[in-house]
Each structure stands twice: as structure tokens, then as C-alpha cells.
Design a protein around this nucleic acid. Structure first.
Ligand SMILES: [Mn+2]
Ligand SMILES: [Mn+2]
Ligand SMILES: [Mn+2]
Ligand SMILES: [Mn+2]
Lengths: 226, 226
DNA sequence: TTTTATTTTTAGGCTCACCTAATTCATGTC
DNA sequence: GACATGAATTAGGTGAGCCTAAAAATAAAA
């Protein structure tokens, strides 16, 4: 099936919105995410439905079909492999890779994908800690990580994933020691949701506004229940 | 200036046709090269003229403006750097790189370009021996290489560049020892232009039909006049 | 249950890059 | 100098992906 890069981005977006909870994805969510208007989304969803890539219930949103999910996973695999390759082999910082990968993901061949994966020795996660779908394009198994906002003052957690793409935010977090693999002690949770934490090895504590903290996904160290 | 990838390909094509001799490039040449129809080319040339990227004399073809040439050199630089990177760092064969580079050239950032150039230590030529324009985007100085068809039986020459992109042809040539840097003794020139030559280090001689030989550019060893 | 507010779809239009068919121009020949 | 030939342009049309404005459906409030 020959799909345009725009179609690929719609499918990827629907996939990622589905990962974040909702079962049916609504027109307006996609429009916001892709920065287009609702009518534009509606007509694209019609095309994707015709191609058997989404199931659509008019006025009630869409879900990916198995085929649509496979395409989305392919794009996500490209994206995350590229992010990993750029940081490992071309000296990019984790804050810089998203934009580059977002364009290239649609233009690399399967051969390129395979060679990049080989050069990286088939990595499991990208620089933000997000799982890279395997070459079989099966959905990666959900990790046990949860948003740091689910924890309490005094908890000690390990950062698994930072699901944010804003370069400014990522630079700031790295400067304050918040990166995948780092241990974090939650010092304070403000009433408006801001979390202040101390990263092991960092100079001082760091404060994360609610909407930033939401994207920092963590696990209890050594699988301890919290 | 924001240019589409299609516009970039038109400018690159005009640049490369100009390198091959003709001063003014005609509509039909571009159409053949890009595999589109003449009316399509005409309307694109009008757009490029409006943008100041080509000078156009109606019914008589176009030439690149300085600005158009700079854009073309930028695309060529991307293309050749990518080809070099793919062979050096991702284990591609020289016969496989063209197609991949032809897509990616339009989608890499200036940052990516710089990092690739750095990883390769600012190479002068791509895997086919073609010069890579510098970051300053000045036109590379024409080498003293000529097509091997300009030489005679008995001449010994050094392959500088193989200006062909067909993977089959390139594989065949490499299998018979014809690659940049290799010394070649011209054994026979057939009346219909086919050249038979012995590559130093290769098992046996290789025969190149006229249209293949034309793309093999060579120089006399150590600058000797022929 | 009716009214109101929000979301989605329909209707109609735009630009880009392509096409085919018809016309016009340039050029070389009689 | 008129004419045939081939190349280039004009004319008109398509599909992809976007838009705004208007209408319809759903969801929330009265
Ligand atoms: Mn993308
Ligand atoms: Mn792939
Ligand atoms: Mn290209
Ligand atoms: Mn560049």
C-alpha cells in the first residue's frame, strides 16, 4: 500500500492518542495535534476509512484497524530508531532529535531502517525512554511506568521515559538531572500540581509544573509497589 | 526562501544538465530527465522564473541564476554527502546509495548536513568520485577528467568518476574492477564505440558499451597529457 | 423536554504538481 | 519566401491536502 507522508502522520497521531487512554479518537483531538482544521481531518479520515486503515463511526471518532496500527507502528519504529541513531552516532542531544526524526521517518527505506537498527544493535528504547517497536511491528508491551504525578511526597522513583518533545523543556530537564535511568526523590507536591524533586547526582532540586510532570513517567525502584 | 522538494529537483536537474555542456537547457531535456511531460516543465519553469531562480527565454530554454545555482549546489551537496555517509557508516554498496540519497536530500536539516560532513571529515568526493560542493556552496572546480571515450587503444588511464546511477551497471563495474582510483588499460575500441579495458587487479578485461563508457570519466596517470 | 452550546460534517474553494489535447512558435527545406 | 516539422506553450482538467463558512448532529443545560 502506497501511503503519503501526511497519511502516515495521521495514523501515527491516532496511534499515540490511543496509547494515552481514549479508545475512540475524536476529530478535534487529531486536528489539535496536527495543527489543521476539523474539516481537513474529517476528509482525511474518510480516505483512511476507504483504505481500511481506520474504523469510523460518524460524529464519534475513529479507531485504528489492525492494518492501520501496523502502519503506525512502522512510522513510530522509524521515528524512534532515527532518534536513537542521531544521538548515538551523530552527536545530537536528546532535545534536538525529534524534529529531524519527524521529517525523516517518512523518507527512509526499509533497507535504511534495517541498517540503522543493526548499527545500534537493535535498541529497545529511544533517547527519551520510549519503546521502539520491533521489526515484527507488534505493539510494544506497556511498561509498568506511570506518570510521576501519580506518586507522593517522599517517594523515590526511577525515571523511565520523558514523553515530551519540546527542546527547551528537554534541555532544562537534562540540565537538572532528569533523564531516563535517573533516581528521583519527590520533595514536595504543590496544591496546583507542581512537583519538586531531587535527582540523584544533580546539584539542586528541580520543580516541574503539572503539565511538564505529567510527561515524566517513572517506576518504583526495583519494582517495589508504591 | 521556502522551496518544495520538486522545485529542488528541477534546479538540481538543470544544474547537472548545464555541467554536461549546453548553456541553455531546454524544456524537453528536463522533461526526459525528471520523467514528466513538457507542459509540466513549462509551468514549473515559469514558477522558478518568478522566484528569480532561472532566467528564461520563452521557447529557448533556461539557465540558472546565481541564486538558483546556489540552491542546486545545496541539494547536490546533500545528495553526495548522504551517499558518502551511507557507504562509509551504514555499510551500503556504491550501487545502492543513489536512490536513498535522492529522497533524503530534500528532508535533512542544515544541522544534519553539518554533522554528517563532520563525521566524514569533510570529504571531497562521493563514492562515485563526483565532487561534493563545499559548505560555502561555491561550484566545485572542474576536474581534468574526461570521458574514457576520448582516449585511444593502448592508453593507460585512472578512473576518477563513474557518473552513472544504475545499480546494475555499478555492480557490474565494481565486479570487474572499474571503480574510482583504479588504473585502466584500454585494450580495444570497437567501431560502434564499445571499449574493452583491463583494470589493474581485476581478473579479466571488461567491455563497456558506448553509453556506459561515456559515464566513466578518467585522467592520464600523474597528469600526463595524452 | 426543550433549548443552547459544542463538535462534526457538508459545501465550496484554493494551490501544487501533474496530465492530455490543441495551438503557436522556431527552424530548416524547397 | 512559403511550408513542413518538431518543440514549446496554452487551455483545460485531476487529485491531494489544505482552508472558511454554513449546516447538521450530539451533548449539555435549563
Ligand atoms: Mn512525521
Ligand atoms: Mn520500516
Ligand atoms: Mn531528489
Ligand atoms: Mn544544506
Amino acid at each position: 500500500m502506497m501511503l503519503s507522508d501526511v497519511m502516515e502522520d495521521y495514523l501515527k497521531t491516532i496511534y499515540q492518542l490511543q496509547r494515552e487512554g481514549d479508545d475512540r479518537i475524536r476529530t478535534s483531538e487529531i486536528a489539535t495535534e496536527l495543527d489543521v482544521t476539523s474539516p481537513t481531518v474529517t476528509s482525511m479520515l474518510e480516505k483512511l476509512e476507504e483504505r481500511g486503515l481506520v474504523d469510523r463511526e460518524k460524529y464519534r471518532g475513529v479507531t485504528l484497524t489492525e492494518e492501520g496500527k501496523t502502519v503506525a507502528l512502522e512510522v513510530v519504529r522509524h521515528h524512534r530508531l532515527l532518534e536513537a541513531y542521531l544521538t548515538e552516532h551523530l552527536d545530537y542531544d536528546w532535545s534536538e532529535v525529534h524534529e529531524e526524526a519527524d521529517r525523516l521517518e517518512h523518507h527512509i527505506s526499509e533497507d535504511f531502517e534495517a541498517r540503522v537498527a543493526a548499527a545500534l544493535d537493535d535498541p529497545d528504547v529511544d533517547p527519551h525512554g520510549s519503546p521502539i517497536p520491533g521489526a515484527d511491528l507488534e505493539p510494544p508491551t506497556a511498561s509498568d511506568a506511570e506518570s510521576v504525578t501519580q506518586f507522593e511526597e517522599g517517594d523515590v522513583v526511577v525515571v523511565e521515559e520523558v514523553a515530551d518533545h519540546d527542546p527547551e523543556v528537554l534541555s532544562y530537564l537534562a540540565d537538572h538531572g532528569v533523564e531516563p535511568g535517573v533516581e528521583l526523590e519527590i520533595l514536595e507536591i504543590a496544591p496546583f500540581g507542581m512537583i519538586t524533586a531531587q535527582a540523584i547526582g544533580a546539584d539542586g532540586p528541580v520543580s516541574l509544573p503539572a503539565d511538564v510532570a505529567r510527561h515524566v513517567r517513572v517506576a518504583s525502584p526495583s519494582g517495589v509497589e508504591h
